[in-house]
Design a protein around this nucleic acid. Structure first.
Lengths: 275, 275
DNA sequence: CGGTCGGTTGAAAGCCTTCAAACGGTGTGG
DNA sequence: CCACACCGTTTGAAGGCTTTCAACCGACCG
């Protein structure tokens, strides 16, 4: 039970400020509501890499806010293979959904040395109850995180290793604040290749080969925990990446051509019958 | 339209009754709230198989309730490969999340001939506003659906075709109301093998081979749109299936043994430092 | 009755995994 | 200070699971 401490936060920004800013980016919040969120109680916790923060099947009474580092959520098969279903950068609540489903069906692990703030459900619910706009904002945040999981599923289910990796790297770049098209994008991503494999549904060995191939192609490099995107456009193309899902923006691509097979998709209400 | 909500739901219930029952199964709702939900306006829509109900990138102002049939949500790669990220049986809202993110990042398709009721966001929001418990229930429903997507990601990312299929079939059995352990489980699942492939991240050909193998093993059969589970226990074992995530129940399995590698997971707060 | 759709099967190819080994970096203890 | 262990990376070779390509069949439909 080591290393927990309550804090008052005079000097630096309060731990929840970044989270509130994230919420405000997609939801209208009054300054009262923002203030109520920002002053929520939070217990600090330092966690080393590979440490589980929440185990599978636990019932939690608090949500985890990442303050520093990288925290992932994952599921495991009986044979022990791990599949991460999300990664979270500072300012994100890893398990906000636990407010509505406190019995965990996936576990939480610090991917790197991280500092996490535990925010009690009770306090969070209280603010949500006082400010319906907060309730909506939190709900919306859950939904937006769900949209990312959906893209991951498409990524893992239907793209090969090279494309999968490219897609993931693009996503992380955008989530780290790098706009698509920025040249010379370089950012920290302190993951091991094994973790990258568990994120993408690949083995560490194949992650390595994929990374080398992408470097040989001059699309990107990954070394010592840093990603460098050499050719954003080409990398995004390789990953079939469209950032719309990250911001709730309107997708720019039209519906891709269906596979030319018998079972084509036909739009409903095309003028005649829908049947 | 004015008939009272009853405890047993008659054959000809109002379209939203089934949905309300689902909500009430996981969330406390007053009878006023239930009634308000049940009398929500809804526009009926008949859709034939393979028809898209909502296209990628559309902005919707209503949510889709499945009344009959099977509706799926999917993403597509640029090359046109499709990956379903959820299927929905009658009584489920396919895109409830659209309340919070009306710009679609995944499309909706009827997998079979279906009847769908479109419920206006405005009306839904109105009820949620009047009854905070409804707001919570809807939020919780989004979260529970998200938990299913998470399991699918684990399934697609880390299990082979046989296990993946077994897991999916078990899930559908439970969602159709068959408890684990029921003997002689038989239920309708009117999917083509191609659709099954798009659900599981496999090709139709391999779906076929996988299905034949499972039948040869006497675990299950799938023919003419009907699934028959011959050996529930064995099938669940093959699929590494634990239904906890479907009900918010406590998982029965302990944390599976990690792969025996260097990077084992260590629990946080094991007595010493977490670092 | 031709055409389409869905299912079934075979053969070949390919992507990824598994198994193994080696290398550099880092931290620890002698 | 060095030996040593451990971790993460890198590379090769072999094997396997899944895909791709093709063909055929039965059922349904206009």
């Amino acid at each position: 039970m080591a290393q927990q401490a309550s804090l008052s936060y005079p000097f630096e920004a309060r731990p929840l400020d970044l989270f509130v800013r994230r919420l405000a980016a997609h939801s209208e919040l009054s300054s009262d509501a923002r203030e109520a969120l920002s002053t929520l109680p939070a217990t600090r916790m330092e966690v080393g890499p590979h440490r589980e923060i929440v185990r599978l099947g636990e019932t939690v009474d608090h949500a985890c806010l990442v303050h520093r580092g990288l925290v992932g959520r994952f599921g495991q098969t009986h044979s022990g293979a791990r599949q991460f279903v999300s990664v979270h950068v500072p300012g994100e609540m890893v398990d906000l959904y636990s407010l509505m489903a406190p019995r965990t069906t996936s576990a939480l692990m610090a991917l790197t040395r991280s500092t996490v703030f535990q925010v009690p459900h009770r306090a969070l619910r209280d603010v949500a109850h006082r400010f319906p706009a907060v309730s909506d904002a939190l709900w919306r945040d859950c939904v937006l995180q769900g949209a990312i999981v959906v893209q991951w599923l498409v990524n893992v289910g239907r793209r090969d290793a090279r494309s999968r990796m490219a897609h993931f790297i693009c996503e992380m770049a955008v989530r780290r604040g790098h706009g698509p098209g920025d040249s010379a994008v370089r950012f920290e991503l302190p993951l091991t290749q094994e973790q990258l494999g568990d994120l993408l549904g690949l083995t560490a060995v194949h992650v390595n080969r994929t990374l080398m191939a992408l470097r040989r192609e001059q699309l990107m490099t990954f070394a010592k925990g840093y990603v460098e995107i050499l050719e954003w456009t080409a990398l995004a193309a390789a990953g079939d990446f469209d950032p719309s899902y990250l911001a709730g923006e309107k997708p720019k691509v039209q519906l891709p051509a269906s596979r030319v097979t018998a079972s084509m998709t036909r739009p409903a209400s095309a003028g005649f019958s829908n049947l």
